[in-house]
Design a protein around this nucleic acid. Sequence first.
DNA 1: TTTAACAAATTTTTT
DNA 2: ATTTGTTAAA
Length: 688
Amino acid sequence: MSSSTPDLNLAQQEAVHYLQGPCLVLAGAGSGKTRVITHKIARLIQAGLEPARIAAITFTNKAAAEMRERARGLIGKPAREVLICTFHALGVRLLRQDGAALGLKPNFSILDSDDVTSLLKDAGGSTDAATARQWQWTISAWKNQGLGAEEALAQAADEDARQVARIMAHYQERLSAYQSVDFDDLIGLPLKLLQQHPAVRERWQQQMGHVLVDEYQDTNATQYELLKLLAGPRARLTAVGDDDQSIYGWRGATLDNLRRLPQDYPTLKVIKLEQNYRSTSAILRAANNVIAPNPKLFEKKLWSERGEGEPVRVVDADNEEHEAERAVARVLSLRAASRHKEWKDFAVLYRANHQARVFEQALRKAQIPYKVSGGQSFFDRAEIKDLCAWLRLLVNNDDDPAFLRAVTTPKRGVGHQSLQQLAVFAARYRLSLFGALFSPSLGAALPARTVAGLHEFGRQLNDLEYRARHAAGAEDARAFLSDWLKDIAYEQCLYDHSDSPQQAATRWGHVNDFCDWMAARCGGEPDDSGGLSLVSARKNLFEVVQTISLLSTLSERAGEQNVLTLSTLHAAKGLEWPHVMLVGVNEGLLPFKPGEDDGSSPTHTENLAQRLQEERRLMYVGVTRAQHSLAVSWTRKRKKGRDVVSAQPSRFIAEMALDRQTTSEDPREKLKALRAEFAKKVAATALR
DNA sequence: TTTAACAAATTTTTT
DNA sequence: ATTTGTTAAA
C-alpha cells in the first residue's frame, strides 16, 4: 500500500483526501488527473473500502487500460479487484447481470455501427446508405437524451422527424427480436433498469462504495442520470473533468452536466488543479490564448514551472503534400538536433481521419516508422468482422445481422435473393433466421439447392456451438478456433477473395492475431479485460465473444512501440508527446465548416456559436498535447471534393497571439534564394 | 440466382 | 483510396 504522504501538490492532495461527500475536480490539461484518480482509489482502500466496491469510469478503453496499469503500479494486487472500465463496459455488466428484468437475455448481442446502418436501411425501406446514416444519427441523439420512439414521435417538430420516429419504432422491434442492443442502449437500458426496478437499483447502490468518473465533461444526459443513480443518495462520487476539453458535443455530451453538478449536489466540493506538469510556458501561453475567447464555466488559469521553452512555430505550406514534407523535415531536424529523441516522441495531429493519408505516404518515403491511431479499428477489418459474426451467432442465435454476414462467408451458393426469401419466411413464422433453418416447411418455400446450402450452414453452426460451449482456457480456445477455421476453409476463402496473394496473407495474419488474442483472453490475461472480468482466470469462449464489440484496438501494448504517432485530435485527448505538430490548421477545417448545408438541419446562430466554441476547445486540446515543442501548420491550397481551392490559415492561429518571428521560413525558399544568387554569379562570370 | 468484375460516389470527430 | 451499387457472365 502506498504511503499517506504521496508526492502530490496541495490541490491534488485535497482532491485525494476529501472523502466526506461528492467532489468535483476541475483538472486542467496536464494537471495530473489520472494521478489524482489512482491516488484517490488508493486512499479509499486505505480508508477501509473494499477494492471491489470502487468503480472508476472512463470513456475509452485506452484510458481504462492506462488507469488499470497506473492503479496496479500504485496499489499492487488489490487494484485488480477495482472496477475500472468504460461507461459502455459498465452498461454491459449491468445488462448481463440484470437485463432479464427488461426482457433481455444475458447472451444479447451488441451491434456495431455498420450493423445498425444496414438494419435501419432495411427497417426504413431505404436503398441509400447516407439517409440511413442520417436516421441513425438522429435516433442516437434521441437516445442520448433519454427519448424512446414514442416520446420522439410525440415531440417531433415536423413530418420528417415523425417519419424517423416511426422508423425508430421498427428498429427497436428488430433489436428486441434479435436480442440485440446498440451502443446507446448500453447506457440507456441500464438507466431504465435502475429507474424502474428499485430492488436492482438498491443492490447496485449497495455494491458501489465510490464512483470515480474520468473526463466528466464528456458525459451526456443519460450517462449523468446513470451516474447519479449508481452513486446513490449518499453521493459517493468523484467527478474529474475539464470544461475546456469538452469535445464530444456532437455525441450528446453536454456541459450542462458540469453546470448541474453543484445544483444537484449542494454539498459538492469543487477543487481546481491549475498547475500543469506537461508543457513549457510558451506552449501553455498559446493554449491559454486560444481558449480565452470562450465563455468560462469555471475560472481557472493554468501555469507551469517547466520554463519558457522553444517558441511555438507556425508553418505554412503550399498544399497537403508540401505540408507533409515539411512535417517530415521538422521531425528529422529535431531528431538530428539531439540524438536522444526517439520516433515515439513525435505526434502529428489533425482534424479528420482522411488527412492521415498524405502523411503516411511522406513518412513511408522517409522511412519513419509510424502508427495511425484513431483510424479504423482492427475490429473493423472485413476478415475480423466475418469471424466475429460467426462467433456472435454462436452465442446468440437470434442475432440476425450476424447470421446474414456469417452465412455468406464463405460463399455457399446462398445469395441475397435466397436470404430475402428466408427473411420473409422467418418473419411469417416469427422466427429468427437461424430458427427458420430447421423449420420443416422451409423446403416448400425455397428452392431445394438453397435449402441444402442453408442446412449445411446450420449443421456446421450446431456442431461448432456444441464444441465452443466446452472450450474454456487458452489451449481449448486456440484448438477450437483453428479447427473451426479449417472447417469453413477460411484461409482458402481469403485467397479467393483478395486482390493479391500478399493481401490475402496479410489478412490471414490478422486472423491469426485475432485467434491468438482470443485464446489469450480465454486464458484470463490480467492485462486488458475491457473491465469485464471480476474473477479473471479461465474464461469460456462465449464470455469473451460478448465483449468484442466494445473494443477497437487489439492490444493496448501497441503504444510501447517506438514509432511516430498520427492521430485525430479527438483520439489524442489524454495523451502527450514531447514534440507535436498540429497540421491542416485551416479555416474551414479546424474550425470545421459543415459545408453546404442543404437546409436538412436548421442551424441556429446559437448552435453555430456553440460549434465554434467546441472547435476552439478541440484546438486547445491539440495545443496542450505538446510537452517541449509545438508546430502549427496550414496550407495555402487544399482539396475540396475534386478540385483544389485556395485556403486561409485558421483564425485560431492568430488567436494564439504568437510573436511574429516564430513563423519559420521554408527551407525551400532559402534554397531558391541561394540558387538565384548562384545563378547571378554564374551569369556574371559568363559575361566576362 | 449467384458471383465477380466494373463504375461511381463519398469523408468530422467515437463507444 | 475505399467502398457501394450496377451490370454482365456463369
